[in-house]
Nucleic acid binder design. Sequence first.
RNA 1: GCCGAUGUGGCGGAAUUGGCAGACGCAGCAGACUCAAAAUCUGCCGUUGGCAACAACGUAUCGGUUCGACUCCGAUCAUCGGCACCA
Length: 824
Amino acid sequence: MDRYSPQEIEKKWQDKWEADSAFKTEMDENRPKYYALEMFPYPSGNLHMGHVRNYSIGDVMARYKTMEGFNVLHPMGFDSFGMPAENAAIKNNVKPSDWTFSNIENMKRQQRSMGLSYDWDREAITCTPEYYKWTQWLFELFYKKGLAYKKKASVNWCDTCGTVLANEQVIDGKCWRCDSEVQKKDLSQWFLKITDYADVLLKDLDKLKGWPERVKTMQDNWIGRSEGLEFEMPVEGLDEKLSVYTTRPDTAYGITFVALAAENPLVEKICENNPKAAEIKAFCDKVRNQSEMERTSSESEKEGIFTGVYAINPFNGNKAQLWVTNYVLADYGTGAVMGVPSGDQRDWMFAKKYDLPIILTLQPKDKELKLEEMDAAYTDKDGVLVNSGKFTGMEIHKAMSGIIDEAEAQGFGKRKVNYRLRDWLISRQRYWGAPIPVIHCPHCGEVLVPEEDLPVRLPEDVSFDSGALSPLATSEAFVNCKCPKCGADAKRETDTMDTFICSSWYYLRYTDPKNDQAPFAKDKVNYWAPVDQYIGGIEHAILHLLYSRFFTKVLHDAGLVDFDEPFSNLLTQGMVLKDGSKMSKSKGNVVSPEEIIAKYGADTARLFILFAAPVDRDLEWSDQGVEGAFRFLGRVWRILDHFEDMVKAGKDNYDVSALTKEEKDLRRVLHVTIKKVTEDIRDRFMFNTAISSIMELVNAAYAFQDKELNAGLAREFAAALIKMLAPFAPHITEELWHNLFGEGSVHQQQWPKYEEEATKLAEIEIVLQINGKVRDRITLPADIDKTAMEAAVKELPRAKELTEGKTIVKVICVPKKLVNIVVK
RNA sequence: GCCGAUGUGGCGGAAUUGGCAGACGCAGCAGACUCAAAAUCUGCCGUUGGCAACAACGUAUCGGUUCGACUCCGAUCAUCGGCACCA
């Protein structure tokens, strides 16, 4: 064989795999299926190292499972709607579709150069009418189920992007994409009712045994479930009742004020015939004009204004001052909060600032609290009630349920569960997305576009610089239509859908990508899905992963799929860093995958990126580490080149007992390696240690670089080594397989099996410890019994020397490991 | 503030069930090959002391359990991530 030259072999095999449709998959009820999926990319134009890492991990799983006999689905596609295409259109005067498809072509070329085992026949591209037809169809399904609705609400608006955003897309008060500050705007927008699924989305996190704990915690936090009591307080002098929600009903006897959000509709009514009306309204306007950042920061000063009106505490008849404040959230709970200064730190600070009364209702079991000595609220959920009518003296947890029962019995309150999660705002005032398939008719109101008229296609005669207007509104031909119900002149909805809708169901489309009758056929989706292994970045922990779970649950309830969670196992890969920080153009620390592949080949790039760190941890890029991976592949190449004649002369069934001691050692290392690599890939996703043990195996083989090696063993060694390395470095192994074993592809071979017997040592090293410290070692037969082992170790000169003149307190004997002699 | 993760040589990391800490790789040092260099092959490579055998120390810090702790328990510190005026 010639020298190892990746440039010569990689392209050759990529072309061959493509010509042979080597990774084409079909349903096969007789084989166990395995669905390996990497998060599909946005077609920005070029792969970055994060993609390379993502796809390398997925490709190892897909190829390994194929060799283990699974029917593997391993598809790829493009999440191709979104803002950058539109920005490019504005800036360079190109059509968003042209920009997008030329980027897709380039990225596919780069993906091909990585040697990934995708079934390209299953490609799904979300911006094609063949795909977004079904995105629209699914929107209509949600609508028919009462899970899609339009309402006027105070929503997040990004001025830079010229569109509204979902709550999940606002990070620290800023736009997730462009980082500019988000404003609140009252707009009429489309929402999906994800809150209907809050409870099951939370509860089913328990089912996701194969998900990282931290992702589940993040979703848990995001959904934010809380249990408590909602109850009504009569408002004095008004024929109105006021609802409040609390998680601390045990403190209800300590209410001295009620805090309303400025947006609470009750504020209007209170202002009627109120001498302070002007003042109150001025305060409300001031609060509303505060930015989202100012309003929701726990740092900002709490302010309020007394309305002059009182509410009545239904538990004890006490009067509570009614205040309008800047710190109560309008859209959580009832937009009104009971004020108990002794039990809540915010209420405490508010009461101190405005000199409101404070009533103590809870104190520790072993200590009497005095208000005049306190400088903060007592917020521990532990203690005994005081000043609480018939609940005085009761332990807190008993009192909590007792007080709720009381409210329910009296009919002024009930147990209530609240969620932090809000409905998903899906309208976008942008062009490059799936149009919302709704027509607004002056007579019939909202009408869905009939299924046979789908897809609602994107028009091309649009203007992109239309200000706050959606670009679709600039196309007369698009906007003006007939009502499907009554035939009257009507107008189309001009907003498009959030691209996260498109990506919420793409993993289902891969199971039946060309279906033009339905988003997917039931038998196919239920054969392949759910995804067995999903791989992607942690940045989608809430956004995409929560939305996909929501979609899957709705489709399950609609009877379209049999499963109710999309991804059985989730692997969140770490970032690729250079010089300690994430690769980015602005930092100038980007390493281009294309250049690395051109210089060293895809096999080296893949091997390095999988070897340098465990898959879920951040990875520091190292040019010298890449050199190391390349050197290793060269070592593999050379040792197999050296063994070539022996491999070809060897027989598959050879006499193992005829091996020399050194050969037996190599055979043992071989079988230990097969065991380790199999378990590391299958059970642990520890690709770094799998590769390091293959390196050790190759190092062991170098003992025979200038020696004869039994031909049978050479053949066994070469076959297993090439197969084990195949998922990591698919091209070099295909070439070596072809050169040494001839016909067929290494990627269609069966994964090597180890013989347990062959992994065992005849003699093992036993450690002598004195008081837990290693003092000597001795080689003994592996099957020696405990007593004999102890005796042999005690006979060691070191053992005698170190125990001489001392009392042996105890001897601990761990079979096959050590003997620890405890002396005094 | 609440929740979660991480912390091991000069560097990336290994140690899977409580049993020889530092596998494998990078960097470094030395040797072989070579006129020479590169490439390749071989050996050494935690710190301190010692010619050495060896000894002491060593997995963020402090303490505990244990014959024995990177691993288990308790506290602390640091870094990163999520949530946070959610009543």
